[in-house]
Structures are given as C-alpha cells and as structure tokens.
C-alpha cells in the first residue's frame, strides 16, 4: 500500500520531468559537458595520456603512473562539480510547482502521509539523475576495459554510487527548499546557495586543519564522495549521506504540514 503509493508518486514525478523540455535540456547540457571533459582529461592536449607519453619520451619516469586511477579521480571530481550545478534545477520544482498549481491540495487530501509523498518525489528525481549519469558510466566502462594494469570494475561503480549518494543528499535538501516557496526560481537560487555554502565548508575543512577542520570534514558531503571515489568504504560516510537525506525528508514533511496550517 505505502510502497505502491511511493511508486505512484515517483512515476508521476518522472513522467512530469519528461513531459517538459527542462529534463531534455538539462540532460543535453550535462551529457555535452561530461563528454567534453571526459575527452579532455583523457586524450586532450593536457590530457593524462599525453602527460604520460611526454614523461616516457623524456625518460624521467621514476615510478609508473596508474593512468586509470588518476583518470577516475579527475573525472569524478568533474562529474561531482557538474552535478552540484544541476541539482538545484532538478529539485526546484518538486514542491514549488505543486503549490503553484494547487495540486498540493490533491496530495494533501489523499490518503497519503507527507513523508510518503516526499520519499516518492525524491526517488523520482533520483532516478532521473541516475539516468543522466548513464552515459558517463558507459564511457568509463569502455575506457577502463582497455586499462593496463586493469582497474577493478568495483572502483568506477563505487565512484558513481558516491556521486548518486551525494546527489540524493543534496536533492533531499533541495526538495525541502522547494517546499518553502511557490517559485521555482527562488527554490533553485536558495538551493544553489546552500550547495555553495557546503562547498565552502569542504574547502575550509581541507585548509584550516585542526579540530575544527576535522569536524567540518565530517559533515562535508564532498569529502565522503571523495572517499568512495578512492575506493574507501566508511560507515560514517553513509551515515552522513543518510542523515542529509533523512533531514531533507523530515523537514519537507514538516514544512508541508505548516504550509497547510497557514494556507489562506
């Protein structure tokens, strides 16, 4: 019952993304840039392969370079940055649109709990995000199959899992922001500001060190993402991701309850 409701909401959310040009435009932009950087990092003029070739020519290779792993690190960082840019646009309409169109009254008077709706929406937008990541996973599969020494396939998969986890955490926060307003634009701008703020926290964590830097590192999503990219599986990283997701869902439910209380 609850599960089928969650699926129904997620399905509806996906349907509405693909009914509007927004999803296609976003996917096109995302695919263009992720493809462009893939090529640049790998075989561009300053690309990794070129660098290794130069080093080999000048015969100053002291240690062997693991191109595959270096590439995965560099490319994952780029994918992460691109994702941070599109997440606010993916999450902006989740509730703002429902409030603007009045469909929130349908959802709020149907036998659904607020958190069921919120979870359904989050799953819907997550599926869209995963769909957008598929081409990059495909490129990596082709590239890494030719890597010498071979790279364990679990590494790029872990990196993508990390990316998805980070995205869901931020989408959940973005969904909460969207539930506070009736304007998509305001929701997108606020979510982007929060993402920038979290980014700054990450930079601070890396730079200031000490106990403060250490504790900031613990709440930095990017740091947890990097751990997974490097193949490090920490329970604490997953706890962090799920904490963000849970907080977003919880605040969304509460904010919708409050919105109803004061709706005139």
């Amino acid at each position: 019952m609850i599960v089928s409701n969650i699926i129904a909401i997620a399905q509806k959310e996906l349907q509405s993304y693909f009914a509007s040009p927004l999803a296609y435009v976003l996917a096109a932009i995302f695919w263009f840039f992720s493809g462009f950087f893939f090529v640049e990092i790998l075989i561009g003029k300053q690309g990794l392969i070129q660098q290794v070739a130069l080093k080999e020519q000048t015969e100053i290779v002291l240690s062997s370079v693991d191109v595959a792993t270096e590439f995965l690190n560099a490319y994952s960082a780029i994918l992460g940055t691109l994702s941070l840019l599109i997440i606010p646009i993916l999450s902006m309409g989740l509730y703002a649109e429902e409030k603007k169109q009045g469909t929130i009254e349908l959802l709020a008077t149907s036998p659904l709990n607020n958190w069921v709706v919120a979870l359904g929406k989050l799953i819907g937008v997550t599926l869209l995000f995963i769909f957008m990541l598929l081409p990059s996973l495909f490129y990596e599969a082709i590239t890494f199959s030719a890597a010498e020494p071979p790279i364990p396939p679990v590494l790029p998969l872990l990196a993508h899992l990390g990316l998805v986890m980070m995205a869901v955490a931020l989408l959940s926060i973005g969904m909460f922001i969207s539930s506070l307003t009736t304007s998509n634009l305001v929701a997108a701008i606020l979510t982007f500001s929060i993402i920038l703020f979290l980014w700054i926290i990450d930079l601070m964590a890396n730079n200031i060190g000490g106990w403060l830097g250490n504790s900031l590192e613990h709440i930095s999503l990017l740091e947890s993402y990097n751990n997974l990219v490097r193949g490090i599986i920490n329970t604490s990283d997953f706890v962090l991701f799920f904490s963000y997701i849970f907080i977003g869902l919880f605040l969304t439910s509460q904010s919708i309850e409050l919105f109803r209380l004061n709706h005139q």
Binding site: K12, Q15, S16, A19, Q101, G102, T103, I104, E105, L106
Partner: peptide, 10 residues
Amino acid sequence: PEVPPLYPDM
C-alpha cells in the same frame, strides 16, 4: 478545490 488540482502535462 476551488482551482482544480490538475497536472497540465498529463
């Protein structure tokens, strides 16, 4: 409701 709660894209 006063405004029919419709999803215009469906």
